[in-house]
Design a protein around this nucleic acid. Structure first.
Lengths: 192, 192
DNA sequence: ACCTGAACACCGTTCAAGT
DNA sequence: ACCTGAACACCGTTCAAGT
């Protein structure tokens, strides 16, 4: 297969995925049909199935790119001055932007992954990368706290940071009860 | 409508809901069809639609009872000796039992609620009750920390406890990375 | 009064026919 | 080589006909 065709194929895949994401953002995962994606993309049902094996495969492609976006954010946060775990989480949770993927879609994909092993594998890969980025970001902090085994402390801390951020995002997607600052500050009081 | 008929109707609803829950636990929300519930219950499609307005209404009924179960747990935890927030969360997160509802179903309903206002209302009601139970449970602790406005501290703390527990359950439903004790202990280190 | 199950519009997916 | 869109099996929901 010549290179030009491969590039064209990738462009087609992204064209379909972009159209699908627009429909997903409007209607959510469970209420999005192939017919709607066909209409939004201006292509045909056959064209979608020539580029993705099925609807779950298309969803996986989209979910992967959405979680990738958040990974970019945390890498940026790690590069900033903050090395304290709470400060790093504050950057991630407070991050805004026009291109921010809808948090309820992340939650819907996360829930779907409990029943879709392939999707689970994709998200596990992303979360593992996120955890590694957290661990690297807080390593300087860990060195000031446990000079004997700072790497182990950073790893444990990174895992808990993932869980803490998940809780916040899960909550905000549905209820939006708490601002990041209140969440982190009250948590500090609670654990003191 | 005579009372006997009303009781019979309620029994029918629970018969259908119980059958549906068995299918849901096996296959998950998105892969469960009315046809499967018809087969599992031994009734007909018409009987289901005579007792629930549609599939979403049936799901709402089931989700409500599952979250109710967790509420019972936290009320029990509140009645125990523990008044420290971390100890109360430890009881909730470590609770086991044969009748424990599958956590991935809770997560799937939570995600669905971001697109279903009626389901959102049901879950909001349950979470508000959970938050109130938390607030009551930690009030003695709050009095030892802030004698001026212990109720306000208890409320803020309860909100954050909800978010912290959500994060843990969201994580465990898919990854199962962390034990409750490690999560709570490392969080303490992280915020110190 | 309640239940049955065939019928309906729509869903995800396929594949013969086109270009 | 890739796309189209009618066709297929199955989905959620309804409702005339039964008991």
């Amino acid at each position: 297969m010549p290179r030009v065709t491969e590039a064209h194929r990738q462009a087609r895949r992204d064209e379909i995925a972009d159209a699908a994401l627009r429909v997903l953002a409007r209607n959510g995962v469970s209420a999005t049909s192939i017919a709607q994606i066909v209409e939004e993309s201006g292509l045909s049902a056959g064209a979608i199935y020539a580029n993705f094996t099925n609807k779950a495969d298309l969803a996986r492609y989209i979910a992967s790119s959405l979680f990738e976006w958040r990974l970019g954010r945390i890498a940026a946060a790690a590069a900033e001055q903050a090395h304290d775990p709470v400060a790093v989480m504050r950057v991630l949770l407070s991050s805004t932007g026009v291109d921010r993927p809808p948090e309820d879609l992340l939650l819907q994909f996360w829930a779907e992954a409990t029943r879709d092993p392939d999707l689970k594998e994709v998200l596990l890969e992303k979360v593992t990368a996120l955890r590694a980025a957290f661990a690297q970001a807080v390593l300087p902090w860990a060195r000031t706290r446990d000079e004997a085994a700072p790497e182990a402390l950073a790893d444990r801390t990174a895992t808990t940071m993932v869980v803490l951020c998940q809780g916040y995002l899960t909550n905000r997607a549905l209820l939006g009860w708490v601002e990041p600052d209140q969440y982190l500050d009250t948590a500090r009081t609670l654990f003191a």
